[in-house]
Amino acid sequence: MAASTNNPSEPGYDRSEPDLSAVVAERRGLINLAYRLLGSLAEAEDAVQETYTRWYAMSRQQQEAIASPGAWLTTVAGRVCLDVLGSARVRRERYVGAWIPEPLPDRTEWLSGRAGGAEGRPADPADQVTLDESVNMAFLVVLESMTPAERVAFILHDVFRYPFTEVAEIVGRTPAACRQLASSARRRVRTGGAGGAGGAAETARTTATARTPGARQAGLVRDLKEAWESKDVEALVGLLDPDALMTADGGGMVGTVLRPVEGGRNIAQYLIHIADKAPGLTLVERTVNGRPGLVAQHNGTPATVAAFDIGGGRITRIWAVRNPEKLRAWTEAR
């Protein structure tokens, strides 16, 4: 399978120790797959852990009978994620306010020694997610509109380049049915309403490593930061698209607006309102899911992570994540 890093024909493959030579090495790829499938780092980590639990529950004889441990792990991880997506749809219907995918920092911003460290801890999952266009927030939000089967078929085929014969084995449908699922998912991406998501789908066909954000988008985010800090309403209005939309996710755990704020001027006034209520707010420019973003800090602790989408030279979408359970990768990386 495409995500497998080892197979029995490769040099160094030790049939007597499949857990060392092939299984452990798959963790990074599994985390990358699971995060894109679930939009949640915590759920991705749990799904991968469940996958490994099933592997180690087998006897050594059963493990050695598997020709490609990497392919087996990917299949199981895909099925686990498919089940999680089904139950997640029910949970998110009861979620307080809007549900936004969990934001990720650029792994180069993590403290040195974070991955592994002197204590022998495993690398943090956030440090293992490759930040390409398939994890930008606009793209992940569109993925949330798909059915679980559509999302799995689309991500496996269009992003990770699995053939439909292998996708079918994971999804439990025929290759032809999986082809239809992926086609339906592409239509959702094209008409998903999140600016830039269509381009993300095309770029996602290659799994490029984390890149330097475009200067234009970084400049717009910096200008918004400065206008916000100076409480300049008109400057904010000039940076925001007239039809811009701001969505916040507090998960019912912290105070935030429960409905999206519509319109550039309304968003500008809301941002000023936030600044007035939180005089100690500090804004820091950070990379959020591979693109320029902002982190609002209180006393040095990240309280809000904001991702942006750009269209026509203005900011069209703002996703503000405040749910502390989704900010673990940011608070632990300080």
Rank of each mutant, 00 (worst) to 15 (best):
D132M: 02
Q217I: 09
R173M: 06
D127T: 15
A278S: 13
R179P: 00
K231Q: 07
G219K: 12
G313L: 14
T53F: 08
P324C: 06
L143I: 04
E26L: 10
P103D: 15
L281P: 00
L38E: 03
K277C: 05
P260K: 07
T206H: 09
A44Q: 10
A126L: 09
G78C: 05
Q269P: 02
V233N: 02
V171I: 08
A44W: 12
A25S: 10
H157Y: 06
A194G: 05
I310G: 02
P324D: 04
R334Y: 12
P8G: 07
V257T: 13
Y270P: 00
S40D: 10
R60Q: 06
F160L: 06
A115V: 07
G290P: 08
A307D: 01
F160T: 07
L294P: 01
V233D: 05
V141C: 08
E26Q: 15
G264T: 09
R15D: 10
R205V: 10
T247L: 00
Q62H: 09
A42K: 13
P279L: 08
V90D: 12
A210L: 10
R92M: 06
S21F: 13
L82V: 04
T206A: 13
V295Q: 04
N289V: 01
R89M: 11
L33E: 00
W319E: 00
V141T: 03
Y162L: 14
L143V: 05
P105S: 10
T165N: 11
T331Q: 13
E10H: 12
P11I: 03
L85W: 03
K277N: 13
M253L: 15
A248R: 01
E285F: 00
V24G: 07
N32C: 10
P18S: 07
E144V: 03
A153S: 15
T174K: 03
V321R: 02
P103H: 14
A67V: 09
F164D: 01
P18L: 11
V159M: 04
G199T: 11
R151Q: 08
C178W: 04
A204R: 05
A77D: 03
E144L: 08
A185V: 12
I170V: 15
W99T: 02
Q269H: 05
V237C: 06
L224D: 00
P105A: 11
D132Y: 00
P175C: 01
G172S: 04
D19F: 08
I66K: 04
F308I: 08
G263K: 09
L73Y: 09
S59R: 02
V48I: 12
E234V: 03
T174V: 02
T256P: 04
K326R: 11
P148E: 12
R186T: 12
Q297E: 15
R54Q: 15
P11F: 06
G192N: 10
P103A: 14
A218T: 15
V261K: 03
A227Q: 01
V171Q: 04
E133M: 09
Q217G: 10
D276S: 08
L239N: 03
W330Q: 06
M137S: 07
E109D: 14
T282F: 00
L41I: 14
C178V: 05
V84Q: 09
L271T: 00
R89Q: 13
I66Q: 06
L181K: 03
D14T: 04
D46C: 05
G255F: 12
E166A: 08
G263D: 11
A25F: 04
G311V: 14
I318L: 15
V261W: 02
V254T: 13
I318W: 02
T206K: 09
E26D: 11
A153E: 01
Y270V: 02
